[in-house]
């Protein structure tokens, strides 16, 4: 199953090293993390040492080696959000979900990340759940945001 998917992704690009990051991005998008067996297959098919793939996978923030929740919650900690109290919002999410930043809930529904500037500074503080942006978030709005995705 994974094997076919990975082949499909590999076929989108020229098999040279400059495509490596794009391949990993597609893989990340597909599974919301980089499964080990997929990386091994890429290493073999692109003839790139696994260590090099892992060095990219751990350097860039877009990649994760652990599975993420169904609804990734990204709390923006850009400057505009920071001065409008984003840190408190992040901590409120931690308390409500019972996890720390960077972790995933046990039911695999949510994972919580802090990100640097989503570029919607006009709406600060901003929280992105999946692809959906929530603007002007306050601590008291946090439970309702979580509830929306629990269904």
């Amino acid at each position: 199953m994974i094997e076919a998917k990975v082949s499909d992704i590999l076929n989108r690009y020229a098999r040279d090293e400059s495509s490596l990051i794009a391949v990993l991005q597609d893989l990340q998008e597909e599974y919301s993390y980089l499964p080990r067996e997929a990386l091994e297959q890429i290493s073999k098919e692109m003839n790139v040492p696994l260590s090099r793939i892992l060095s990219l996978a751990t350097f860039f923030k877009a990649f994760s080696l652990k599975p993420k929740g169904k609804h990734p919650i990204n709390v923006c900690l850009g400057t505009a959000c920071h001065v409008r109290g984003a840190q408190l919002i992040l901590e409120k999410f931690e308390r409500e979900l019972g996890i720390k930043t960077g972790e995933t809930t046990q039911d695999l529904l949510f994972s919580l990340e802090a990100v640097r500037c989503l570029g919607c500074c006009g709406l600060a503080p901003v929280v992105m759940v999946g692809e959906e942006v929530h603007g002007k978030v306050t601590q008291t709005k946090v439970p309702a945001i979580i509830k929306k995705y629990k269904k």
Binding site: D16, E17, S18, S19, L20, I21, A22, L24, Q25, L56, F59, F60, K61, A62, F63, R116
Partner: peptide, 20 residues
Amino acid sequence: RGAGAFVCGEETALLASIEG
């Protein structure tokens, strides 16, 4: 597409990242 590293705005880092 960038992969989420602020330092890649620096030109030599950006070029390295384009090269994979």
